[in-house]
Computed example of a mutant assay.
Amino acid sequence: MFTGIIESTGQVAEVLATGTNQSYWISSPISHELKIDQSVSHDGVCLTVEAIDGQRHKVTAIQETLQKSNLSHWNKGHQVNLERCMPMNGRLDGHIVQGHVDATATCVSVNDLEGSREFRFRFPASFASLVIEKGSASINGISLTIFNVTRDEFSVAIIPYTLEHTNIKDVAPGSVVNIEFDMVGKYITRYLSLQQA
Protein backbone atom coordinates (compact mmCIF):
# COMPACT_ATOMS: atom_id res chain seq x y z
CA MET A 1 0.00 0.00 0.00
CA PHE A 2 1.14 3.51 -0.85
CA THR A 3 0.05 7.00 0.17
CA GLY A 4 0.62 8.98 -3.02
CA ILE A 5 3.32 11.10 -1.39
CA ILE A 6 6.27 10.90 -3.80
CA GLU A 7 9.58 10.05 -2.16
CA SER A 8 11.95 10.61 -5.06
CA THR A 9 12.15 10.77 -8.82
CA GLY A 10 14.20 8.51 -11.02
CA GLN A 11 15.10 8.36 -14.67
CA VAL A 12 14.67 5.53 -17.17
CA ALA A 13 18.21 4.48 -18.05
CA GLU A 14 17.41 1.52 -20.29
CA VAL A 15 14.35 -0.17 -21.84
CA LEU A 16 14.41 -3.88 -22.68
CA ALA A 17 11.68 -5.80 -24.53
CA THR A 18 11.23 -9.52 -23.82
CA GLY A 19 8.26 -11.09 -25.57
CA THR A 20 5.19 -9.06 -24.54
CA ASN A 21 6.96 -7.69 -21.43
CA GLN A 22 9.04 -4.56 -21.06
CA SER A 23 11.79 -4.19 -18.48
CA TYR A 24 13.21 -0.89 -17.30
CA TRP A 25 16.45 0.02 -15.56
CA ILE A 26 15.72 3.06 -13.38
CA SER A 27 18.47 5.32 -12.02
CA SER A 28 17.50 7.03 -8.77
CA PRO A 29 18.84 8.29 -5.43
CA ILE A 30 16.99 5.48 -3.60
CA SER A 31 17.83 2.53 -5.90
CA HIS A 32 20.75 1.39 -3.72
CA GLU A 33 18.44 1.29 -0.67
CA LEU A 34 15.90 -1.02 -2.32
CA LYS A 35 15.72 -4.77 -1.91
CA ILE A 36 15.06 -7.42 -4.53
CA ASP A 37 11.37 -8.47 -4.48
CA GLN A 38 10.35 -5.14 -2.93
CA SER A 39 7.23 -3.39 -4.27
CA VAL A 40 7.81 0.19 -5.41
CA SER A 41 5.36 2.62 -7.03
CA HIS A 42 6.65 3.89 -10.39
CA ASP A 43 4.41 6.72 -11.65
CA GLY A 44 1.67 5.09 -9.61
CA VAL A 45 2.28 1.55 -10.92
CA CYS A 46 3.29 -1.04 -8.32
CA LEU A 47 6.29 -2.90 -9.76
CA THR A 48 8.59 -5.50 -8.19
CA VAL A 49 12.32 -4.80 -7.94
CA GLU A 50 14.09 -7.62 -9.81
CA ALA A 51 17.71 -6.49 -9.72
CA ILE A 52 19.86 -3.73 -8.24
CA ASP A 53 23.09 -2.40 -9.69
CA GLY A 54 24.47 0.48 -7.64
CA GLN A 55 22.27 3.52 -8.28
CA ARG A 56 19.98 1.60 -10.64
CA HIS A 57 17.22 -0.96 -10.20
CA LYS A 58 15.31 -3.11 -12.68
CA VAL A 59 11.54 -3.68 -12.92
CA THR A 60 9.35 -5.42 -15.48
CA ALA A 61 5.84 -4.61 -16.71
CA ILE A 62 3.70 -7.39 -18.16
CA GLN A 63 1.24 -6.93 -21.04
CA GLU A 64 -1.74 -6.20 -18.73
CA THR A 65 0.18 -3.37 -17.04
CA LEU A 66 1.38 -1.96 -20.36
CA GLN A 67 -2.20 -1.86 -21.69
CA LYS A 68 -3.64 -0.03 -18.66
CA SER A 69 -0.83 2.43 -17.99
CA ASN A 70 1.49 4.81 -19.83
CA LEU A 71 4.56 2.59 -19.35
CA SER A 72 4.61 1.62 -23.03
CA HIS A 73 5.40 5.32 -23.73
CA TRP A 74 8.44 5.34 -21.45
CA ASN A 75 11.75 5.96 -23.22
CA LYS A 76 15.29 6.49 -22.01
CA GLY A 77 15.41 9.72 -19.99
CA HIS A 78 11.74 9.64 -18.88
CA GLN A 79 11.37 11.01 -15.33
CA VAL A 80 9.57 8.61 -12.96
CA ASN A 81 7.86 9.34 -9.62
CA LEU A 82 8.94 6.80 -7.00
CA GLU A 83 7.40 5.80 -3.67
CA ARG A 84 8.22 2.85 -1.44
CA CYS A 85 5.44 1.05 0.43
CA MET A 86 4.09 2.72 3.53
CA PRO A 87 5.50 1.22 6.75
CA MET A 88 2.83 -0.09 9.12
CA ASN A 89 3.81 2.54 11.69
CA GLY A 90 3.84 5.37 9.14
CA ARG A 91 1.48 8.28 8.60
CA LEU A 92 -1.12 8.22 5.84
CA ASP A 93 -0.39 11.72 4.51
CA GLY A 94 -2.12 11.23 1.15
CA HIS A 95 -4.82 8.60 0.61
CA ILE A 96 -4.85 4.82 0.23
CA VAL A 97 -3.14 4.01 -3.08
CA GLN A 98 -2.70 0.40 -4.20
CA GLY A 99 -0.44 0.98 -7.18
CA HIS A 100 -3.03 -0.75 -9.39
CA VAL A 101 -3.60 1.74 -12.20
CA ASP A 102 -7.18 1.80 -13.50
CA ALA A 103 -6.62 3.68 -16.75
CA THR A 104 -4.78 6.54 -18.35
CA ALA A 105 -5.94 10.13 -18.57
CA THR A 106 -4.93 12.84 -21.04
CA CYS A 107 -3.97 16.37 -20.04
CA VAL A 108 -6.20 18.85 -21.87
CA SER A 109 -4.91 22.11 -20.38
CA VAL A 110 -2.36 23.64 -18.02
CA ASN A 111 -2.81 27.07 -16.42
CA ASP A 112 -0.15 28.91 -14.42
CA LEU A 113 -1.90 30.66 -11.53
CA GLU A 114 1.14 32.55 -10.18
CA GLY A 115 1.72 30.38 -7.13
CA SER A 116 0.18 27.13 -8.27
CA ARG A 117 -0.47 25.35 -11.54
CA GLU A 118 -3.84 23.95 -12.55
CA PHE A 119 -4.05 20.86 -14.76
CA ARG A 120 -7.19 19.55 -16.43
CA PHE A 121 -7.43 15.88 -17.39
CA ARG A 122 -9.84 13.87 -19.54
CA PHE A 123 -10.45 10.28 -18.41
CA PRO A 124 -12.57 7.39 -19.77
CA ALA A 125 -16.22 8.21 -19.02
CA SER A 126 -16.78 4.60 -17.91
CA PHE A 127 -15.08 5.60 -14.63
CA ALA A 128 -17.37 8.62 -14.02
CA SER A 129 -19.02 7.04 -10.96
CA LEU A 130 -15.62 6.97 -9.19
CA VAL A 131 -14.89 10.67 -9.60
CA ILE A 132 -16.39 13.09 -7.09
CA GLU A 133 -15.87 16.76 -6.31
CA LYS A 134 -13.08 17.18 -3.72
CA GLY A 135 -12.36 13.44 -3.89
CA SER A 136 -8.95 11.85 -4.26
CA ALA A 137 -7.18 10.34 -7.25
CA SER A 138 -3.63 9.25 -7.90
CA ILE A 139 -2.03 10.85 -10.97
CA ASN A 140 1.34 9.26 -11.85
CA GLY A 141 1.35 8.08 -8.24
CA ILE A 142 0.71 11.53 -6.73
CA SER A 143 -2.20 11.80 -4.29
CA LEU A 144 -4.28 14.75 -5.48
CA THR A 145 -7.63 16.37 -4.70
CA ILE A 146 -9.85 16.73 -7.76
CA PHE A 147 -12.35 19.50 -8.52
CA ASN A 148 -14.45 20.98 -11.35
CA VAL A 149 -15.63 17.46 -12.13
CA THR A 150 -17.65 16.68 -15.27
CA ARG A 151 -18.58 13.29 -16.72
CA ASP A 152 -15.12 12.77 -18.22
CA GLU A 153 -12.88 15.58 -16.96
CA PHE A 154 -11.53 17.01 -13.72
CA SER A 155 -8.93 19.52 -12.56
CA VAL A 156 -6.16 19.41 -9.98
CA ALA A 157 -4.11 22.26 -8.52
CA ILE A 158 -0.41 21.66 -7.86
CA ILE A 159 1.61 23.55 -5.25
CA PRO A 160 5.20 24.63 -6.05
CA TYR A 161 6.73 21.92 -3.82
CA THR A 162 4.98 19.14 -5.74
CA LEU A 163 5.93 20.73 -9.07
CA GLU A 164 9.57 20.80 -8.04
CA HIS A 165 9.76 17.29 -6.58
CA THR A 166 7.68 15.20 -9.03
CA ASN A 167 7.40 14.69 -12.76
CA ILE A 168 4.08 16.53 -13.03
CA LYS A 169 6.13 19.57 -14.04
CA ASP A 170 6.74 17.75 -17.36
CA VAL A 171 3.01 17.20 -18.04
CA ALA A 172 1.65 19.33 -20.91
CA PRO A 173 -1.51 19.27 -23.02
CA GLY A 174 -1.57 15.91 -24.77
CA SER A 175 0.50 14.12 -22.10
CA VAL A 176 -0.81 10.72 -21.02
CA VAL A 177 -0.71 10.00 -17.28
CA ASN A 178 -1.56 7.01 -15.09
CA ILE A 179 -4.67 7.30 -12.97
CA GLU A 180 -5.85 5.23 -10.00
CA PHE A 181 -9.26 6.07 -8.61
CA ASP A 182 -10.05 5.99 -4.89
CA MET A 183 -10.33 2.42 -3.60
CA VAL A 184 -13.24 3.18 -1.27
CA GLY A 185 -15.25 4.52 -4.20
CA LYS A 186 -14.55 1.34 -6.15
CA TYR A 187 -15.88 -0.84 -3.35
CA ILE A 188 -19.05 1.25 -3.01
CA THR A 189 -19.67 1.20 -6.76
CA ARG A 190 -19.20 -2.57 -6.88
CA TYR A 191 -21.52 -3.11 -3.90
CA LEU A 192 -24.27 -0.99 -5.45
CA SER A 193 -23.96 -2.72 -8.82
CA LEU A 194 -24.43 -6.11 -7.14
CA GLN A 195 -27.51 -4.85 -5.27
CA GLN A 196 -29.10 -3.87 -8.58
CA ALA A 197 -28.27 -7.19 -10.27
Rank of each mutant, 00 (worst) to 15 (best):
Q11G: 14
I6S: 13
A197K: 09
H78F: 02
H100S: 05
S31C: 10
S193K: 05
I30D: 04
E83G: 01
D112Q: 06
N21Y: 02
T150V: 00
N89M: 07
S41D: 03
I158S: 07
K68L: 10
A125S: 12
R190V: 02
I142P: 14
F154S: 00
W74M: 09
I146R: 06
D93H: 10
Y161S: 13
T20Q: 07
V59D: 01
Q195C: 14
V156Y: 11
V176A: 13
C46N: 00
T189R: 11
G174D: 08
S23W: 08
K76L: 10
G115H: 09
T106N: 09
A51E: 15
G135T: 06
V12L: 01
L144D: 02
G44M: 02
I168L: 12
C85D: 00
A17N: 13
P124V: 06
T104M: 05
E50W: 05
S31G: 14
L130M: 12
G54H: 05
H57E: 05
T3M: 10
R120H: 00
K169E: 15
I52Q: 03
S39H: 00
V45F: 02
G99K: 00
D53L: 11
R56K: 12
R151P: 14
V184N: 00
V108M: 06
I26M: 08
D182V: 10
G10K: 08
M1D: 11
V108L: 14
T189V: 12
L71D: 12
T162V: 12
I5Q: 03
H42N: 13
S109H: 07
Q63D: 15
D37H: 13
I159K: 08
L16T: 05
Q67H: 10
S193F: 03
D93I: 06
G135M: 13
P160V: 01
P173H: 01
A137S: 14
G90M: 06
D102P: 07
Q38E: 15
N111K: 13
S155W: 15
T106F: 01
N70V: 01
N178L: 04
V101D: 01
I5S: 05
L92S: 02
G44F: 03
I62P: 01
T9M: 15
N21Q: 14
L47Y: 10
M1K: 04
L163S: 05
N178M: 09
G10C: 08
C107T: 01
Y187G: 09
T48M: 04
T18P: 01
I62M: 12
I139W: 08
V110Q: 13
